Amino acid sequence: MDIRYPVVLEPEAGGGFFVRFPDFDDVFSEGPTRDEALCNAIEALSGMLAFKLENGHDIPRPEAVSPDADAVAPDAKVQAALLVRFARGTRSLAEVARALGTSWPSARRLEDPAHWPSLKSLDRVAAVMGKKLVLSFE
């Protein structure tokens, strides 16, 4: 699953860009150049998604991004936590913990954006969810 959220860059009258996310009404950023605006958007998105993950809020899956549109991905820790959350679906963390043969706190850490899960852990949870772990560099 591609965890890139579409962004809209709007040129500001005095220069620079205002960035908003169609998927989120409460996240926005800006920057003096296009590149800096997109970099700042990544930080804003990562922070907001981490907050929502830590507090158990619903998080929408990213809208499909057309090839010519701008999109940004959150940082790697947040992406890993989101992938686990999205793959888990309606399963409880207790069910996931049982399937992994681990404790509920250990399963909960997989969705903690402040925790760095190992590739081995991510591979195990993917298998339990009937998924396959795929890595890529972009």
Rank of each mutant, 00 (worst) to 15 (best):
A73S: 15
L38R: 06
A127Q: 15
D70Y: 14
H57W: 12
A81S: 09
G15M: 06
V27K: 04
E54V: 12
A81K: 00
A50G: 08
L38N: 01
A94S: 14
E36L: 11
T102D: 06
F137H: 09
A87S: 15
V84K: 00
F28H: 14
A76T: 14
V65C: 10
P60E: 03
E30R: 11
S92D: 11
K132N: 04
I42T: 12
L9C: 13
K132H: 11
L38S: 03
W104F: 15
H57S: 11
Q79G: 02
D68A: 01
G47I: 00
M1W: 03
R61I: 09
A41Q: 07
V65T: 14
E111T: 10
A107F: 08
Y5E: 03
V19C: 05
D68W: 02
V96R: 00
P32Y: 04
L122N: 05
Y5L: 02
D70L: 07
I42E: 10
A50E: 01
G15R: 02
R88N: 04
S106R: 07
A64I: 09
D68C: 00
E10F: 05
G14V: 07
E95W: 06
E63W: 03
F17P: 07
R91S: 13
A107D: 05
R85C: 06
V8I: 15
G89W: 07
V27G: 07
A97G: 10
R91L: 13
E36N: 07
A81L: 03
W104G: 00
A80R: 05
T102Q: 12
R109A: 13
G31W: 08
P62Q: 06
S46G: 09
H115C: 07
I3L: 11
F21K: 04
L53A: 07
R34Y: 11
L133C: 08
A64E: 12
K131A: 14
M1K: 02
A73W: 06
R85V: 11
A99F: 10
P67Q: 05
G101M: 08
P74K: 09
M129F: 15
Q79S: 08
A127K: 15
E95S: 14
I59A: 05
W104E: 14
A71D: 03
G101V: 06
A50Q: 00
S92R: 13
L49M: 02
P113N: 03
G47W: 00
F21Y: 13
G130H: 15
S92F: 14
A114K: 10
P11Q: 03
D112W: 10
L110R: 00
I59V: 12
F86K: 11
F51Q: 06
S92T: 15
D58T: 14
A107I: 05
W116R: 06
V84E: 01
P11W: 05
P113T: 07
L83D: 00
L93Y: 09
Y5G: 02
F18W: 14
D35L: 04
L82S: 00
S66H: 15
R108W: 11
D112Y: 09
S103G: 15
A44Y: 02
P11S: 01
D58K: 12
F24L: 03
E30Y: 12
L9Y: 10
L119A: 01
P6S: 03
